[in-house]
Lab assay of single mutants.
Amino acid sequence: VEVSPDIYQQVRDELKRASVSQAVFARVAFNRTQGLLSEILRKEEDPRTASQSLLVNLRAMQNFLNLPEVERDRIYQ
């Protein structure tokens, strides 16, 4: 799965849209901590040159964001 270069903005938009914390998003989207998500968003590494471990996390976030909005909102509950 190709990771979109605007994945970082997509995540920020989703945090605002759903009014969820980084901690909640990190847990449900890719089963990691708020600290890691914060670092990923701060660095904004180009997905095309990202490490394998970062790509795994970015893909998981993208797959989560590809779910229908209704389903994502249900998962946040």
Rank of each mutant, 00 (worst) to 15 (best):
T49E: 08
S53C: 11
D46E: 11
L36R: 15
I40P: 02
R27P: 03
Q10K: 07
G35I: 11
P47K: 00
Q9P: 05
V1A: 08
K43C: 08
R48S: 14
K16S: 08
L54F: 04
Y76G: 01
Q52P: 13
L15I: 15
F30K: 00
R27G: 06
Q9E: 15
S53Q: 14
L54K: 07
F25S: 02
E45H: 07
V20N: 00
A26T: 04
S4P: 08
Y8A: 03
Q22S: 09
L15N: 00
A23E: 15
N57L: 09
V11R: 00
S51I: 03
K43A: 13
V24W: 04
A26D: 08
N63K: 13
M61C: 11
L55T: 09
Q10M: 14
E69T: 11
V3G: 05
I40W: 02
Y8G: 00
R17V: 02
G35F: 15
E45R: 06
Q9G: 13
R17D: 00
A29G: 06
V20C: 11
Q52S: 11
Q22T: 07
V3L: 13
V1N: 04
F25I: 01
V11Q: 03
L37N: 04
L55G: 07
I7T: 03
V1M: 04
S51N: 11
P47S: 04
L55I: 09
R59M: 12
D46I: 04
M61E: 00
L67R: 14
R42S: 11
R42P: 01
E39W: 05
L41F: 03
V20K: 01
L58D: 01
G35L: 11
L41H: 00
N31L: 06
Y76M: 01
Q62T: 11
R72F: 00
Y76W: 04
R59T: 12
V24L: 10
A26H: 02
Q34Y: 08
Q77G: 15
R12A: 03
V1I: 09
L55A: 09
K43L: 09
V3E: 05
A23P: 07
L65S: 03
L55H: 07
R74S: 10
A18I: 15
E39D: 14
F25Q: 01
A50Q: 04
A50F: 02
E14N: 01
N31I: 06
V3W: 03
P68M: 05
V1F: 06
V28H: 04
Q34F: 08
L58G: 01
F64H: 07
P5N: 08
E71L: 05
S4C: 10
F30Q: 03
V28L: 09
A50S: 07
Q9N: 15
S51V: 07
A60D: 12
R74F: 09
E14L: 00
L54M: 13
L54E: 09
E69V: 11
E39L: 10
D13A: 15
L65E: 03
F30V: 05
S19M: 13
E14M: 00
Q62C: 05
Q22A: 06
P68V: 04
D73Y: 04
G35T: 14
A29K: 01
N31C: 08
V20W: 03
L54H: 06
R59H: 09
L67V: 07
A60Y: 12
V24R: 03
R72E: 02
P68Q: 12
V11N: 00
Y76A: 02
N63S: 11
T33Q: 08
S38N: 13
R42L: 11
E45G: 05
T33Y: 07
S21D: 08
Q52R: 14
V56K: 09
F25N: 00
Y76C: 02
F25A: 02
N63L: 07
L41E: 02
E2H: 14
D73V: 03
E2D: 11
A26M: 03
R48E: 14
F25R: 00
R27K: 15
R48D: 11
E45K: 08
N63F: 05
Q77V: 07
I75H: 08
P68W: 00
K43N: 07
L67D: 00
Q77L: 12
E2K: 15
S4A: 06
S4I: 13
L67Q: 12
E39P: 02
R48K: 14
L58K: 00
K16C: 15
P68S: 12
A23Y: 11
T49Y: 15
N66E: 09
Y76E: 00
L55P: 03
Q77S: 13
L41V: 04
M61Q: 01
K43Q: 10
Q34S: 09
V11P: 01
Q52Y: 07
R32Q: 13
D46C: 12
L41Y: 03
R42F: 13
P68I: 05
E39F: 13
Y8H: 04
A18E: 03
S21A: 03
R17G: 01
P68R: 11
L65V: 06
K43Y: 06
F25H: 01
T49P: 01
N63R: 13
N66Y: 08
S21F: 00
R72S: 02
T49M: 14
V3A: 04
D73H: 04
L15S: 01
L55Y: 11
M61S: 02
R59F: 05
K16T: 08
F64E: 02
S53A: 13
K16F: 13
P47M: 04
S21H: 08
E69Y: 06
E45C: 09
A23T: 12
Q34L: 07
